[in-house]
């Protein structure tokens, strides 16, 4: 079972549908009480997904209000696979400059910054991925595979080795897939990235099954 955290901001349907298309069972977890009930019922949660659209500060606020921050920290600590998607990936990092300065979950080292104006913002559309570091999440992803991005801010990773795949946009190398241990993330939308995206969702499910 894959638990999809939703404190009520984004559109979860496409993420849920995406995981269902690759054969995963999913459950939507809106808050800490729902998480505790799930665990208490003995449901085996093999992996956790943190999706997200909207603004960084609002999303952190919602996560906090829903009591999900300690749960995310616990998931990261106990080694259970955690996958942040789009804004959800950015939330895994230390801080963001979106509309001010906000602290993130700090599970990965880096800062979320805005694109400069020498490129069109948002970075919207299909961009190819360069695999920087082979990883089970990137199994069967080949040179020239395109994925769908839509974001105005990107991660400046503090440690390059947490970047697994990158996308070149203008002069910037945008971290596309990140990971350190069990904490993983994709800046693009795998659930909207055609067959290539489905391969990545499938790979995450396989990682969860191995856990």
């Amino acid at each position: 079972m894959i638990a999809i955290l939703d404190p009520g901001v984004g559109n979860l349907k496409s993420v849920t549908k995406g995981f269902q298309r690759v054969g995963a069972q999913t459950v939507v977890v809106p808050d800490a009480a729902a998480w505790k009930a799930l665990i208490a019922a003995g449901d085996e949660v093999q992996g956790v997904v943190l999706p997200g659209v909207g603004a960084f500060g609002d999303a952190m606020f919602q996560l906090r209000a829903a009591g999900l921050i300690p749960i995310l920290r616990q998931v990261a600590r106990e080694g259970r696979p955690l996958f942040g998607i789009c804004l959800g990936m950015q939330l895994l990092f230390g801080s963001s400059q979106e509309h001010g300065r906000y602290m993130g979950l700090g599970l990965l080292p880096g800062e979320v910054v805005r694109f400069r104006d020498d490129v069109k913002v948002p970075h919207m559309g299909w961009n190819d991925l360069d695999v920087v570091r082979p990883h089970p999440l990137l199994r069967d992803i080949r040179v020239g595979d395109y994925v769908y991005f839509v974001h105005s801010y990107y991660v400046e990773a503090k440690q390059r080795d947490c970047v697994l795949a990158a996308a070149t946009y203008g002069s910037i190398s945008v971290p596309g897939v990140v990971g350190q241990g069990n904490v993983l993330g994709a800046q693009f939308h795998p659930e909207k990235s055609g067959d290539v995206g489905e391969r990545i969702l499938h790979n995450f499910v396989a990682i969860c099954e191995d856990w």
């Binding site: 549908k17 995406g18 298309r21 769908y148 839509v150 659930e191 909207k192 995206g197």
Partner: peptide
Amino acid sequence: VAAQTNIP
């Protein structure tokens, strides 16, 4: 339509 597609 959304249920049938895996593109934006």
